[in-house]
Each structure stands twice: as structure tokens, then as C-alpha cells.
């Protein structure tokens, strides 16, 4: 989609068009529909199935999760491409924003797949708790990711608010190595106006501050993921080199 340039502050019509476009992009690129997740909410892994995951070797489970994570990232790439103005950015800046932001958006989106009533997440077609991921050998990362999902769910965002927040996470002019920071800044500024407009309309202005607080948590979770990957790749360099998805390696190693 084209990004219509307009004077600042943007007109109400422009804000509403931008909001609609982001919401549509989010809906069209979500890996799972909310109704689908809701219907499967109590489809839990059996004891035997959990045991099978826990019996996988560290490298087997890392590979399995790297494949799942890469699938989720691919949907985020599609989302980014449909954010008005994103494709108008230089290729370097598109890559930079996705390299630094795709995992953050995956984590935000993960909260849609989370059941707070029993602390389980949708994975491989069923819901499972942190115990499912035991063989990864990074319990602290998993607990931190689940805690984050809990805190996101507590905000009870609508799909529209979630869509806007995901676009804000991605379109971040503070990322290092951007060539046209000004252009990213202008996109970001309009998205911020959209979020304020939406929260005002929903009478939930207090959410704005809470959402901006999540940004630093996201960044620390991503650092922890890269730290764990570094630890893993030192122990299993061949696994990373030969069987991890190429996109995962490009983004995270």
C-alpha cells in the first residue's frame, strides 16, 4: 500500500484510513485466528505427549522451536510489508527493522495464543505450559516469555489495539544503522497518533503508558533469546550450521 504523505498533524480521515489499513494487515497476516484459538483453548497435551517433548535431546528441541519461530517470523514479515509506507523504505531499512523487530512482534502476537487460566501456550496444535520446553535447557527464558504473555493478556487489548501496537514495535526509528531515520520517524509519529486516537475512541487512554512500558521488556527478552542461542551454538555449532532454518540464522546469529 502507498503511504499518503500529508501535513502534520495528520487529518482525521488519514488517521482512520491508516488505522483501518494496519488492522486489516494484522488480520490478514495472523498465523491463527482468535476464534480458532478460543475453540482449542482446552486442548491440552497429554502426559505422554509432554514426556515425548521432554525426552527430546537439547539440539532436537532447539531445532524444532527454531522451525516454529521461523514460521511465526514469516507471518510478521508479511505484516510489515502491508504496513503503509514500509515498502517505500530502502531495502536496508526494511531489513534493519525486521532484523531487530520481528522477534519482538512474535512475542507480542504470542499473547494471543496464551491461556492465562492455566498458563499454557498454543504450540504444535495444542496448549502446553513451560514444562513442554524443558529440554531446551533455558528455563529462565521460557519463564520470562510466559510472564510477558501473562502481562500482555492482563491489558486485554482488542485486535485493533494489538495491530497498532505491533506496528509501533516494528516501526522504531531508534534502531541502529537506519539510513533514512527521518522517514521511519515520520511513519512512527503517524502510528503514534493512530494509537492515541484509537485509545481515546475506546476510552482506554491509560493503556498508552502501559504499552510503551512493554517495549523495554521486549528488548530484554530478545537479548536473552540471542544470549541463549549463543550458548547453544557454542555447544552445538553443527546443528545451527546445518539444520537450523536459514532465515532464523540470518536474523538471530
Amino acid at each position: 500500500p502507498e503511504y499518503p504523505y500529508c501535513p502534520y498533524p495528520p487529518s482525521l480521515l488519514h488517521i482512520e484510513e491508516l488505522c483501518d489499513s494496519i488492522v486489516r494487515s494484522h488480520r490478514d497476516t495472523s498465523q491463527f485466528r482468535l476464534e480458532e484459538l478460543q475453540a482449542l483453548r482446552w486442548k491440552l497435551f497429554s502426559r505422554e505427549e509432554i514426556h515425548a517433548y521432554q525426552s527430546k535431546s537439547v539440539d532436537e528441541m532447539w531445532q524444532h522451536c527454531a522451525v516454529r519461530l521461523t514460521e511465526a517470523v514469516q507471518y510478521v514479515v508479511e505484516f510489515a510489508k502491508r504496513i503503509p509506507g514500509f515498502r517505500g523504505l530502502g531495502q536496508n531499512d526494511q531489513i534493519t527493522l525486521l532484523k531487530t523487530g520481528s522477534m519482538e512482534v512474535v512475542l507480542v502476537r504470542m499473547s494471543r495464543c496464551f491461556n492465562t487460566e492455566n498458563s499454557t501456550v498454543f504450540f504444535d496444535g495444542k496448549f502446553g505450559s513451560t514444562e513442554l520446553f524443558k529440554s531446551l535447557g533455558c528455563g529462565d527464558l521460557m519463564v520470562a516469555v510466559f510472564d510477558f504473555a501473562h502481562s500482555m493478556c492482563a491489558l486485554r487489548l482488542t485486535e485493533q489495539q494489538m495491530a497498532l501496537f505491533c506496528s509501533l514495535v516494528l516501526i522504531n526509528p531508534d534502531r541502529p544503522c537506519l539510513e533514512d531515520r527521518g522517514r521511519v520517524h515520520r511513519m512512527r509519529r503517524d502510528l503514534e497518533v493512530c494509537l492515541s486516537h484509537m485509545l481515546h475512541r475506546d476510552n482506554q487512554e491509560s493503556l498508552q503508558h502501559k504499552l510503551y512500558q512493554k517495549v523495554s521488556v521486549l528488548q530484554s527478552l530478545c537479548s536473552l533469546h540471542v544470549e541463549k542461542l549463543h550458548w547453544f551454538s557454542q555447544r552445538y555449532p553443527l546443528t545451527v550450521h546445518s539444520v537450523f532454518p536459514p532465515l532464523y540464522k540470518e536474523l538471530f546469529t
Binding site: 510489508k81 536496508n92 540470518e250 536474523l251
Partner: peptide, 17 residues
Amino acid sequence: LKEKHKILHRLLQNSTS
């Protein structure tokens, strides 16, 4: 960056489905 991110670059080049 394009050279180091060939897969991502290709995904970005593909038209949206």
C-alpha cells in the same frame, strides 16, 4: 545487509499474496 540477509531480502521482494 542485503548480502547477509538473502532469504529476508527475497521475502521482502516477493509480492504480498
